[in-house]
Amino acid sequence: MTKIVNNRAWFFVLPVFATVAFSAILPLMTVVNYSVQDTFGNNQFFWNGIGWFQELLDPSSQLGEQFLSSLLRTLLFSFIILMIEIPLGIAVALAMPREGWTVALCLVLMALPLLIPWNVVGTIWQVFARGDIGLLGWIVNRLGIDYNYTGDALDAWITIIVMDVWHWTSLVALLCYAGLKSIPDAYYQAARIDGASRWAVFRTIQLPKMRRVLLIAVLLRFMDSFMIYTEPFVLTGGGPGNATTFLSIDLVKLALGQFDLGKAAAMSLVYNLIILAVCWVFYTVMTNVDAERERVEA
C-alpha cells in the first residue's frame, strides 16, 4: 500500500518548522542548559546538576519560599478571576440580544477591551485608579473610602482583579454567546411547552449546550491569568512589597533584576511544566466530554 505522497506540501511547511525551531526549541534548550549550571558572569559556567531544582522546590530555602508564595499568589489570583469572569461572562451572554441591529453594536462594544494592548490596559488603570488625578480613585476617596493601590496590598489586589475582569470578561461572554447562538429554537419552544421556568431553561438547555465553550473559556482564562505579567507590572510593579508579585514577575526579577540565570531557568521550567500539566488535564476532560457526546447507543 502506498501512502499519499505530495512533496510540495513539505516544502510549504518548511518555513514553519524553521520558525518554530528558532523561536521555541532553541531558546528552550538554552533554558534547560542554564538550569543545570551556575555562572559567576564572564561567560564562565559550572555544572550544578539538579541543585537549582532542589532549592526551588524546598520551601525552607529562601528561593523555595519565594517561589511557593508567588505560586500560591498566582493560583489565588487565577481562582478569583475565574470565579468572577465565568459567571459574569455567562450572565452578559444571556443578556445580549439574539437578533436585530443591537447585536452588532453589542459585539463591537464587547470586543473593544480585547483590542487594547496589555501594557496600555495597565497604564489606563494606573492613571484611572490614582487617588489624585484618576477618576476612579478620586471618586472612591471622595466617597470616604480610603483607597490607595500603591500603598495597600488589598487595594492593589482589588484594582488588578477589577482591571482583569474589565479586560477579559467580554472574551468569556463572546464565547458563551457563540454557544448560545448554536442552540436551535425548537429547544426553547419545547421548554416553554414543558412549562420550564427561566432557571430550568438555563440549567437544562443553555448550560449543557455551553459546556464545550465554557471549558475553552476556563482554559483560556486560566492559562492567561496564570501567566499574567504586563498589567500588574505596569500597575503595581509587583508591590506594595511582594503583595502582587506573581510568578511571572518573580521570574523576571530573578532573571533580569538579580541576573540569577540558573535559578530563573529552573523556575521557568517548573512554571512551564505546571502549565503543561494543567493543559493536559483540560484537554483530557474536554475530549472525554466530546467522546461521551458522540457515543450513540442503540
Partner: peptide, 19 residues
C-alpha cells in the same frame, strides 16, 4: 480517504494513494 488495506484500481491501474 485512503483505505487501511486493499486497493483501488482505475482501468487496472493502482490509484489507492492518489489524492
Amino acid at each position: 480517504d485512503t483505505p487501511t488495506s486493499g486497493r483501488a484500481l482505475i482501468d487496472g491501474e493502482d490509484v489507492t494513494g492518489r489524492p
